[in-house]
Amino acid sequence: MKIGILVNEGPYTHQASDSAYQFAVAALKVGHGVHRVFFYHDGVYNGSSLTDPPRDDRQIADRWSKLAAQHEIDLVVCVAAALRRGIRDQNLAPGFRISGLGQLVESGIQADRLVVFGD
């Protein structure tokens, strides 16, 4: 099954990004496809390459990048939300791209399920 994911919250403050990640890993493990993860609202901060958490903490941006590379997941950061919050191509972590809200709607159309994680 083709699954789309929406993440509405930034990393570390809220569990949303963690839940979305654990869900994505579990879905991939049983053979489902996660075709896209769309990051909206403060969720765009998940794509910042400038984050540098303590070594013993989870590396949220980095693990999204790695998961995307391993499973060809399209990580999309909403352009309007990103520009509001200072996320640009120059500080975007590997595997993420900036695009429009149309990518979220398209995910809703094309995916068999769209699962939302937020506050």
Partner: peptide, 13 residues
């Protein structure tokens, strides 16, 4: 514009 891609699928949900 990416919007065109969705319309091309012809799916209405």
């Amino acid at each position: 514009m990416s919007e065109g891609d969705g319309e091309a699928t012809g799916l209405v949900k």
